[in-house]
């Protein structure tokens, strides 16, 4: 695994930096780019980003560890995020978590040994009107039933 941006990503990053009066503001966008390309953010990647932004590594470390969407270890190809906050909860999010746990043979917070799926419980995804809701990588799946969850997971290759 490399820890540097590939050429196209570096170009994207250089465009993003110009949007802000202070380079540090490009920290979260840079972390998003790194995770998009590499799946998670290693210590070496943090050093690289700190270098690009002329920041101490500790400053970038402070930021990356604050936000729940940044992963510090390898995740599955599909990261299943089950919304667990009140509207989803009272409409059965617990059953969805238990069903997926049973189907994948892992607990929430774990990744399957073949690195295909990670399952995590997340706080409110902001789609309460169509609860219960899950998010797989960047995609929302709403108005779910157990049957629909199975159908969605069946289609993930």
């Amino acid at each position: 695994m490399t820890t540097e941006f590939k050429k196209e990503t570096l170009e994207e990053f250089n465009e993003i930096v110009k949007r802000y009066p202070d380079k540090q503001a490009a920290t979260i966008p840079a972390l998003h780019l790194m995770q998009r390309d590499q799946g998670y953010i290693t210590d070496e990647a943090l050093e690289y980003i700190a270098g690009l932004l002329d920041l101490p590594v500790s400053t970038v470390h402070s930021t990356v560890t604050y936000y729940t969407m940044f992963y510090r270890e390898e995740m599955g190809k599909y990261v299943i995020q089950v919304c667990s906050t009140l509207s989803c909860y009272i409409l059965g999010s617990k059953n969805i978590v238990e069903h997926i746990e049973g189907r994948l043979g892992i607990k929430a917070g774990e990744t399957t040994p073949d690195k295909k799926f990670s399952l995590i419980k997340v706080e409110c995804l902001g789609a309460c009107g169509t609860a219960p809701v899950i998010r797989i990588n960047d995609d929302y799946h709403e108005d779910l039933t157990i049957e629909k969850v199975d159908e969605i997971l069946d289609n993930l290759k």
Binding site: R19, A25, I28, L31, H32, Y67, T68, M69, F70, E123
Partner: peptide, 10 residues
């Protein structure tokens, strides 16, 4: 106008 994405924090 620029769009700036957060990263998960209430």
């Amino acid at each position: 106008i620029y769009v700036h994405r957060g990263a998960g924090s209430y």
